[in-house]
């Protein structure tokens, strides 16, 4: 490999610290476990939490996929992938079906994940109550008492002002009827994929020094009121202009010359697979 670093960049003590926190996170679904977040060779807030989880998990025979907002080839994904590969020598793929470990920024892949896979999500702000309470000391107490009136009030105020919940991404969820959790800035479209997932989902926030998890087959419900039920983004009548997919998460792109909007799959590897006839 031609590198002087330990396998997977970290020293073994750092990996053990992250592994211990991860095991606790799995045992307490939705609870943010504090951990000694390491200084990484990428900026805090650029996926260091996800990267640290990935490095603590990765083995020599791993097949790694890294995506950024649905794309395998944008800057964040490419750089994280390069760092991991140069310190581990693992194989990478863009094919969601072939990957054993998937690190993602702000999307859950369109293809349902299976039980052999682990999804690692990068999290900028892990605390769903941060917008209503600035103090970490107080939010920890609110979680301990299951006092989520602030989170409900936040949704209520949005409905009062705009007649709908305005959270586009990072729409808060309730895990196993106990902890309110930030699902990371995935679109609302991806929230239902957290519920009863086949794959283990780990979430890491490097700057905020928190690791949390959604184990497989765990109930995850998006917060909503009876008369204002949770709704995902609607793309009714639209389809991807490349592969023709419907019922997937689409990006709206404006044609600069005509000013018209057209749509394209956000998950580029799924789009590519469809264009190649499902192979």
């Amino acid at each position: 490999m031609g590198t002087k670093y330990n396998f997977a960049f970290f020293d073994e003590g750092s990996k053990r610290e992250i592994r211990r926190a991860t095991l606790k996170a799995v045992a307490i679904p939705g609870y943010q476990v504090p951990f000694a977040s390491r200084e990484m060779p990428i900026g805090r807030g650029w996926g260091t939490g996800g990267l640290q989880l990935t490095l603590s998990l990765i083995g020599e025979k791993e097949i790694l996929k890294v995506i950024d907002q649905g794309s395998d080839e944008s800057v964040n994904a490419v750089n994280i992938k390069k760092l991991i590969v140069s310190t581990t020598g693992v194989q990478t793929t863009i094919d969601t079906r072939k990957a054993t470990l998937i690190q993602s920024r702000h999307r859950i892949p369109e293809i349902p994940l299976n039980k052999e896979q682990i999804l690692v999500l990068q999290v900028p702000i892990p605390e769903p109550l941060r917008v209503v309470e600035a103090s970490e000391h107080k939010t920890k107490r609110l979680h301990s008492e299951s006092d989520y009136s602030g989170a409900w009030l936040m949704l209520f105020e949005q409905i009062m002002k705009y007649d709908s919940v305005t959270h586009g991404a990072d729409y808060p969820v309730i895990v196993k009827d106990r902890y309110v959790m930030s699902p990371s800035p995935i679109p609302r479209f991806d929230n239902p994929k957290l519920n009863n997932s086949e794959a283990l989902i780990l979430l890491g926030a490097g700057r905020e020094k928190k690791i949390y998890a959604v184990p497989p087959y765990t109930k995850v419900i998006s917060m909503a009121f009876e008369d204002y039920p949770f709704r995902v983004e609607s793309f009714s009548g639209q389809k991807c202009h490349l592969c023709g997919a419907q019922g997937v998460y689409l990006d709206e792109i404006i044609d600069e010359k005509t000013g018209e909007a057209y749509y394209q799959c956000n998950d580029t590897s799924n789009c590519l697979m469809r264009l190649n006839g499902g192979k």
Partner: peptide, 20 residues
């Protein structure tokens, strides 16, 4: 191997913790 054998055990352990 304190690096690779421990990693393999950890992954098995994590999978078992996630799937009692």
């Amino acid at each position: 191997d304190m690096v690779h054998d421990v990693q393999k055990i950890y992954r098995k352990l994590l999978n078992c913790m996630a799937r009692p």
